[in-house]
C-alpha cells in the first residue's frame, strides 16, 4: 500500500507535473483563464493520461528500444483523437471553447514523460494509479490557476459552468466585482500567477535553488 501512497504523493505534490516537472505548460497557461475551461481540459487530460498509461503498460513487453517512442506517441495520439471526437459529439459547446487545446494534449509532455518513465516499466494497476495521480496533480494546479485568474481577472467564478455540467448549473456564477485586473486573464497573467504558485510551492516544501 505504501507504494501507492508514494505514487500519489509524487503526482499530487513532490513531483507534480505542473509545479515541479513543469511539463504541459502550453495547455496549462492557455486554458487557465477561467474555472470552466480549466476544469474541462484538466478532466480530459486526466482521462487521456490514465488511459495511455494503462495501454502502454499493457503492451510494455512489446516495446523494444527501437520502436518504443513511435508506439508511445501513437498510443497517446490515438487516445487524444478519441477523446476529441467524443467531446465534439457529446459536449459540443465545451468543445467550441477548449477544442483547440484538446488537440494540444498530444504535445503535453506529461503524457510521454509518464509513458516513458513509468508505464513502460511498471505493471498495469500501478501505471493506472500513476496516470491518475499525475493527472489529478495537473488538474488541481489548473483549477487553482483558473480560479485565481477568473476571480481576480474578471470578478466572477464558475462562469459558464453549465457548458460542462449541464443546464442545472446555469445560475451558479458568483459575481465579486464588475470588472477585474484584466492582465491576469491575458497571457502574461498566466505566467505571473504560475510563477507565484511555483514560488509558493517551493517555499512550503522548503526547497532551495
Amino acid at each position: 500500500m505504501s507504494e501507492y501512497s508514494q505514487i500519489a504523493g509524487e503526482g499530487l505534490w513532490r513531483n507534480n507535473p505542473a509545479l515541479v516537472q513543469l511539463l504541459g505548460l502550453c495547455p496549462l497557461l492557455a486554458v487557465s483563464n477561467s474555472f470552466v475551461t480549466a476544469l474541462g481540459l484538466g478532466l480530459v487530460t486526466l482521462g487521456v493520461l490514465t488511459t495511455s498509461n494503462i495501454i502502454i503498460s499493457l503492451i510494455r513487453n512489446l516495446l523494444h528500444d527501437v520502436i518504443r517512442l513511435p508506439i508511445q506517441i501513437m498510443v497517446i495520439a490515438t487516445s487524444v483523437t478519441l477523446a476529441d471526437m467524443a467531446l465534439q459529439a457529446w459536449y459540443f459547446e465545451l468543445h467550441q471553447r477548449i477544442g483547440l487545446f484538446v488537440a494540444l494534449i498530444v504535445t503535453n509532455c506529461t503524457l510521454l514523460g509518464r509513458a516513458e518513465s513509468f508505464a513502460s516499466r511498471n505493471p498495469i494497476v500501478m501505471s493506472a494509479v500513476d496516470g491518475f495521480m499525475m493527472g489529478t496533480g495537473f488538474l488541481w494546479v489548473l483549477l487553482l490557476l483558473g480560479t485565481v485568474r477568473e476571480v481576480f481577472g474578471m470578478g466572477t467564478l464558475f462562469n459558464n459552468l453549465h457548458l460542462l455540467l449541464g443546464p442545472a448549473f446555469e445560475n451558479v456564477t458568483l459575481h465579486f466585482a464588475d470588472s477585474g485586473f484584466l492582465l491576469l486573464v491575458l497571457p502574461p497573467g498566466a505566467f505571473l500567477s504560475l510563477g507565484c504558485l511555483i514560488a509558493l510551492k517551493n517555499y512550503i516544501s522548503g526547497d532551495q535553488y
Binding site: P70, T78, L82, A86, Q88
Partner: peptide, 23 residues
Amino acid sequence: RIFTLVLLAMLCGLAVSGLNGVT
C-alpha cells in the same frame, strides 16, 4: 519489431475509425 509497430498502428487506426463511425 516492425511487425509489432505495424500491427499496433492498425489497431490504433481501427479504434479511431470505429469511434468516427459512431460520432
